[in-house]
């Protein structure tokens, strides 16, 4: 893709340096992105809590079993949420081909030279070898890659989860679609993977929130708020230097 003068030394001094700079409000995250993000947040929260309970029930159902449905209820919540989560993830994957510019797959899989270069720059920034984070309008290439990884984890979670869900069915859609996972790994390993991936997602979340705060402090771009409003406020230089700023428009 064409990124005119992206390495121009004339632009070295970017908009952030020296005095007040006019900022432009950029509509970055469309409604679908924001919605899927927040559905993910709540789904992951609910799934992790209920999932951990299913693995290791930290409360006891008291009294006669006939009056209790603690585990049953929690499993119901887990399953119901799992369906929402799965549809959400599926839609998000679809949206990465059909959505607006910053929703699309280029943001997640660095293929262009500039995205790959951005990857190195971002890594250098994180390891304190570079002062400023490379300017981006949408996701920076490293974050994009991380979101690819997290979506792979999501897909693993969906497949292992539905594989376990399919165990209760003799025949039909669930075993025929997901039963192979159990046969491939052996069911206990499916459970183990399902559990470990949960922890990996939690670990990712910690870093995800932290990097959001960090970049917000660095750039003051309204990054944290943008996932609610959709808007970032960026300097012209920032926008210009971003390698995704000049992506071709989506074909109608």
């Amino acid at each position: 893709m064409e990124i005119p003068n992206s390495s121009s030394s004339a632009n070295k001094a970017n908009g952030a340096v020296g005095g007040v700079v006019d900022r432009q409000v950029v509509y970055v995250w469309d409604l679908a992105i924001r919605l899927t993000h927040w559905i993910n947040v709540f789904a992951i929260l609910i799934l992790s809590l209920t999932g951990y309970f299913i693995y290791s029930p930290f409360m006891e159902g008291r009294g006669e079993a006939t009056n209790q449905y603690l585990m049953g209820t929690i499993r119901f919540v887990h399953f119901a949420t799992a369906f929402v989560f799965a549809v959400n993830v599926l839609f998000r994957i679809y949206w990465s081909f059909a959505g607006t510019k910053y929703a699309r797959w280029h943001q997640f899989v660095p293929t262009s030279r500039s995205r790959l270069r951005g990857l190195g720059r971002m890594l250098r920034y994180y390891s304190f070898l570079r002062r400023e984070p490379p300017p981006q309008v949408g996701h920076n290439p490293l974050a994009g890659l991380a979101y690819t990884a997290i979506h792979i984890l999501f897909v693993i979670q969906i497949f292992t989860g539905f594989a376990l869900y399919s165990l209760a069915y003799r025949t039909g859609f669930w075993p025929s679609t997901f039963g192979w996972v159990n046969l491939l790994m052996g069911t206990p390993l499916v459970r183990l993977v399902h559990d470990i991936v949960m922890w990996l997602i939690i670990a990712f979340t910690i870093h995800h929130v932290y990097s959001g705060i960090l970049l917000e402090i660095e750039e003051r771009s309204g990054l944290l708020g943008s996932i609610v409003t959709g808007y970032k406020s960026l300097t012209p230089n920032h926008i210009y230097e971003s390698d995704t700023a000049n992506l071709p428009k989506k074909k109608p």
Binding site: A16, V25, K249
Partner: peptide, 26 residues
């Protein structure tokens, strides 16, 4: 790293760019 570094002013909104719009060269 950020000790005594840049002193960014408050961002100021001026105009809006839609996601599919190509930004103008500054």
């Amino acid at each position: 790293r950020n000790q005594g570094a840049k002193s960014n002013g408050q961002p100021k909104a001026k105009k809006t760019i839609e996601p599919n719009q190509t930004p103008a060269r500054p």
